[in-house]
């Protein structure tokens, strides 16, 4: 394998792409759709109507700290209670940690790991609070996602799957032109007569598809992250992207899917002699990605970093197998004698 030869072949193919409007369209439009249009259409209205869940800005001075005491009746402000029992009190701007509060009223406070019985909590930040015969009004729940946040995360995950879809679909378009195109144009024969090995040619042609596809995918990831963060941060309270799961998805799984798509499309191209037929059959490679969509939407299991790595490993193995098959398909003799 000579890298300079591979690069020569890849560069030639890429300069051909520049003159093919279908390839340019798919390289430009698809990412714009996925990185800008889809998040805007789906996330913007959602964020407009969603309730914000930023914690209230509550400042409690550390001057008055009560530990393990019992209070019956009274009005408190600017106090921190730890391990206390309170009954019939009114508290404002206080911090409660691991307390039990009965028949009381709590306002503008920070309540954590506490049980509230027959009382009310208003305009407060709450964390792991048990309400027993009590009401919480205008509370901001810390540390765990609200229902709408959960939905938002799922939705972002759904949009993220498109970043695996682009690298699977774009090669279908490009490969149909480069491989089927070269075949129809009979330009492979003189190319095969040069002192270039089959593997170098295959690698060069594959690289010419891989590079622009992944470049476009990764470039569109940046505006996507910015846009999603801009829209979702007010609801969630922090920037949801990039998170580890999707970093693995975009930078490990996506290129693996891209390789798989290229390899499959080379095999398809060797069997059909029509650009459109090649695209139709080749686009079947999106099926595994669609399966991922379905699984993630069904909520069967959540896509965590480990699941993402496991899927990447599996696709990586599939890639090795298909790459081997492709190398067998892409041989001089095969191309000239059997490629139809």
């Amino acid at each position: 394998m000579r890298l300079d030869r591979i690069w020569t072949v890849a560069r030639k193919d890429m300069s051909e792409f520049r003159t093919n409007k279908y390839i340019i369209y798919s390289l430009v439009l698809m990412p714009i759709l996925i990185a800008v249009v889809l998040p805007t259409i789906y996330l913007a209205p959602f964020t407009m109507f969603a309730q914000p869940n930023e914690p209230f800005d509550i400042n409690i001075p550390d001057t008055d700290i009560r530990i393990g005491e019992t209070f019956n009746e009274g009005t408190f402000a600017n106090v921190t209670f730890i391990n206390c029992n309170l009954e019939n009190v009114v508290a404002e701007n206080c911090r409660f940690e691991s307390c039990e509060i009965r028949s009381s009223l709590v306002r503008s406070s920070h309540v954590a790991n506490t049980t509230v019985i027959n009382g009310a909590v208003m305009r407060s930040n709450v964390l792991n609070v048990t309400f027993d015969g009590s009401v919480g009004s205008d509370t901001r729940i810390l540390g765990e996602d609200t229902e709408q946040e959960g939905f938002l995360f799922q939705f972002i995950g759904f949009l993220m799957l498109f970043f695996i879809l682009i690298p699977a679909i774009v090669p279908t378009v490009i490969a149909s032109y480069t491989f089927v195109g070269e075949k129809l144009n009979r330009s492979l024969e003189p190319l095969l007569a040069t002192p270039t090995t089959d593997a170098e040619l295959l690698a060069g042609k594959s690289l010419s598809i891989f590079l622009p596809t992944m470049l476009v995918t990764w470039l569109s990831f940046i505006p996507f992250v910015l846009l999603v963060n801009f829209l979702a941060t007010p609801i969630i309270g922090h920037a949801p992207l990039p998170d580890l799961t999707w970093l693995i998805g975009v930078f490990v799984l996506a290129p693996l899917f891209c390789v798989m798509s290229i390899a499959l499309n080379v095999i398809v191209s060797s069997r059909v002699s029509d650009v459109r037929a090649s695209q139709q059959i080749g686009s079947l490679v999106v099926l595994p990605v669609v399966a991922l969509f379905v699984i993630s939407l069904s909520g069967l299991f959540t896509l965590g970093p480990l699941v993402m790595l496991a899927i990447s490993g599996a696709i990586g193995l599939v890639d090795v197998g298909i790459a081997y098959l492709t190398l067998k398909t892409f041989q001089r003799e095969e191309i000239l004698v059997r490629w139809k």
């Binding site: 300069s15 003159t19 093919n20 144009n185 009979r186 492979l188 024969e189 190319l191 007569a193």
Partner: peptide, 12 residues
């Protein structure tokens, strides 16, 4: 080799 069909890259 000059093959039966010229097989040039038409867009280049």
């Amino acid at each position: 080799l000059l093959p039966e069909m010229p097989g040039l890259y038409e867009s280049l």
